[in-house]
Design a protein around this nucleic acid. Structure first.
Lengths: 335, 335
DNA sequence: TTGTACGCGTTATCAA
DNA sequence: TTGATAACGCGTACAA
């Protein structure tokens, strides 16, 4: 039976209201009283009961972060950064794994956790557009998704521009047969569509043929398999743009396994700038999104909606975050 | 203002107790009544208020998982598996990042979240032994730590035996100058101590000198730096046992960067079996702990303590999980 | 500046 | 089988 406000009050010889005032940092408390109460709190090891506080105030101090999967280094990194950003506001982060299942994502948007969380930061994979319009009153911030006139706040990089940058970099190396690994047809695969669009635009501009490889998901194994298909069918490419670093690392593996040289025979570039790419051999060129800023903005956006300032209501906002091209060995020094 | 038990009761023309019975699957409810209540619940979109439920029952349905860092692939994998295991019991997992800071770990053990969570699964990094004895009544399961007569339940593999297996494998390749990367002197670095002990035992048995490289932490950069020091100072090793896969991938990078062949010149083995090692070039030999089983057992153990069966009280238990040696290119086919 | 009393939405105890 | 009602611990009018 942990001590409550009542126990502290009894020990300090004051009323529970006074104890509550001290706990919540209310200003008008006599110094002597405050000291007595503090002493009692220490002595009893009092900790506020969050359930009661939430029941009363309607706020839990917990926000949820929903990502497709924690195993993916990129999402793990973003999750860590969001936890850090949330900490500055003394929020706790509840991490939900959707595994990219539409049903789970729908539940989230429907507010199945409604009473337990104050807000939601959501990186959707299976849902897009209309389906993301949410009924529950819980504020939501979308991550890595750029829905046109989306129903909620969101923060993302310019996927299409970034993909174009990556492709243009391969072009600048003089490569002419440039493949893309990571194509997805599902209408909800917005990220894949945007990166594909960027890739296509550059090749079209250069008057080159596209070489598009579909994948089931964005893991190393998918990249390895796609690369193998690419090498088995027809004339091999001299450069590959992979829609994320995991795909690129898988492709790299297949290339080296077959005795091809990177970037000599084939230049490879990825997307996300995960740590693995800085230690692979060769090290991996990539597009680096400003993940720290994404995390910070997402939390700030949520804080504004949760606050009672003027920003709490109002039209959904769309925040753009910078990205940059990082050139490493997998595309460097190539003729 | 979301609907409560009261609203549902009013709409269904019954008392709140009856609604509560239906919601909680109580058996003795007339079918007709149950149907009426169900209809009202659907119509109003009623969702139980977790805060109220917790205030009343003392249970939140939330367990916390505390790991040093989510960015580490091994912990990310374990976290994902624990979330899955917890789901079977409809528990929600709150993930805490300690960043290996003693202060944060101490807060956890002291039960700073006491009221918010039902149990804690904890992978300590900065704390060991006595310090892990916890005051708070919250059940705790320790991960990856084998404290002698520890104060809490814990589940772990036999680190010393596994390290010996890895070292013996390098010996079986005929290697004689076998280095270890990952030594840590802090008394709380129990994992490093145990793996070092396994390594030493095998070399002592074979009458070989040890070659021990300390690291500040277990990341790729530490492995790369340690390998560089190893190559710069004196006679290079012909094999390296790294205390985890990240260190090994860092070491691999340094070796290849300097034009050495793996495993030709130097054989490398890691520990954890993270996915990166299956796609690196060369692929990485490693010790594979049964992570899925670790996650399952940790959750089961917690469930027993949380239940009201006979297992809820009683002495701390120590569960051992299997591991196996996985031989890949970084040690295979070497003379 | 501090105290009293009520209600947040549940579950649980007792009667009916 | 169902209903009335008392807690759970906290915040907050309102009173003193």
């Amino acid at each position: 039976m942990p001590p409550g406000l009542k126990d502290v009050a009894a020990r300090a010889g004051v009323s529970i209201k006074t104890v509550s005032n001290v706990v919540n940092g209310y200003v008008h408390v006599a110094p002597a009283t405050r000291a007595r109460v503090q002493a009692a709190i220490e002595a009893l090891g009092y900790v506020p009961n969050m359930a009661a506080r939430q029941l009363r105030s309607g706020r839990s101090g917990v926000i949820a972060l929903a990502v497709p999967e924690l195993q993916s280094p990129y999402f793990a990194e973003v999750a860590g950064l969001i936890v850090q950003a949330a900490e500055q506001r003394s929020w706790t982060v509840l991490i939900d794994q959707t595994d990219g299942q539409a049903e789970r994502e729908r539940n989230l948007v429907a507010g199945l956790r409604r009473h337990a969380i104050d807000g939601l930061i959501f990186s959707p994979l299976a849902l897009a557009g209309e389906e993301l319009a949410h009924q529950s009153g819980t504020p939501m911030v979308l991550l890595g998704e750029r829905v046109w006139h989306g129903p909620a706040d969101h923060v993302a990089i310019d996927n299409t521009a970034a993909a174009a940058d990556a492709t243009r970099h391969l072009r600048s190396l003089g490569r002419r047969r440039i493949a893309a690994i990571g194509v997805q047809t599902a209408p909800s695969a917005v990220t894949a569509h945007q990166r594909l669009a960027g890739y296509r635009s550059v090749l079209a501009e250069a008057g080159l043929e596209t070489l598009e490889m579909p994948v089931a998901s964005f893991h190393r194994a998918d990249g390895a398999a796609a690369m193998a298909r690419l090498l088995d069918e027809g004339e091999p490419p001299d450069a590959v743009f992979c829609f994320n670093d995991l795909l690129a690392l898988g492709a790299l593996r297949t290339l080296l396994e077959r005795g091809l040289s990177v970037p000599g025979d084939v230049a490879v570039i990825g997307f996300d700038d995960i740590e693995d790419g800085r230690f692979s051999t060769p090290t991996l060129s990539t597009i680096s999104p400003d993940a720290a800023r994404i995390a910070q903005l997402a939390v700030d956006l949520l804080a504004e909606r949760l606050g009672d300032g003027p920003a709490a209501v109002g039209a959904p906002r769309e925040l753009r975050v910078d990205h940059r091209l990082v050139v490493r060995e997998s595309t460097a020094g190539a003729a």
